[in-house]
Design a protein around this nucleic acid. Sequence first.
DNA 1: CATACTGTACTAGCTAGGTAGTACAGTTGG
DNA 2: CCAACTGTACTACCTAGCTAGTACAGTATG
Lengths: 131, 131
Amino acid sequence: MSVDPTSHVPLYEQIVEYVRGLVAAGVYRPGEALPSIRALALELVVNPNTVQRAYQELERQGLLHTRKGLGAFVSQNGAASAQDKSEAAVRARFAEGIQVGRAASLPAGRIRGTFEKALSESTKEWGSNDE
Amino acid sequence: MSVDPTSHVPLYEQIVEYVRGLVAAGVYRPGEALPSIRALALELVVNPNTVQRAYQELERQGLLHTRKGLGAFVSQNGAASAQDKSEAAVRARFAEGIQVGRAASLPAGRIRGTFEKALSESTKEWGSNDE
DNA sequence: CATACTGTACTAGCTAGGTAGTACAGTTGG
DNA sequence: CCAACTGTACTACCTAGCTAGTACAGTATG
């Protein structure tokens, strides 16, 4: 995944969600070091200040803690908390979409059909992951 | 519905989507006059310039046409085109949510469950509408 | 001790989105 | 005709988000 500078969502929020996804998925486990601010900035082709802001937000949310000279580390309850927040983010997107559909008087069945189509599309990309 | 100034989505885009929903739902039918720029600005508690920008965008999309001194009117194919665009917007929201869930390694079943929960929640608000 | 990492903290400048205010042009109805 | 509505077109100003650049402080390793 990368980051989209044309989106209306601020870059630092996209980075928050990106890192949160990695933690939720277990790519970085509690206690482990996350990529340094400068390294992640290079990887995402973004200013270090922007990554710093994202890390500050993640620290505020209790997902990670930072130590000067050492780096940023996933909190002990970071994985669980990241999963919760990710699922809440998913739900918020769905609620938005449903609201738009409702406002346009799309019947519930049609809304559900649109969702199922999008979901099966995504299965091709990400694999089944049906555990 | 109203408009959310704290959202990252620009106000004028929210208004575009709002009016599009009304047209898709048949609140305003082809040939009919839409609310005037100033009237809608009052209703949404927004600057008239912002509504004007939204109407310009809707005109560009072929959903309405404006006439000086008269007002803004729904195009002949406005309803159908509004329904198409609304459904595309719904799908985009769903795709975003699914992507966030995938990135967090949420299994497809859990993603679907989250969707169904949100959908049944919304049914309480909007009625079944299962035609 | 020196180098090279880490996070942190500034200042300055740019752009997009929005508000506020004003002015102008076309239409309608009393 | 004129008042009151319509859309349109500006300019000026503010804020949030982001970039760029610099500097400083703590830690680890040779």
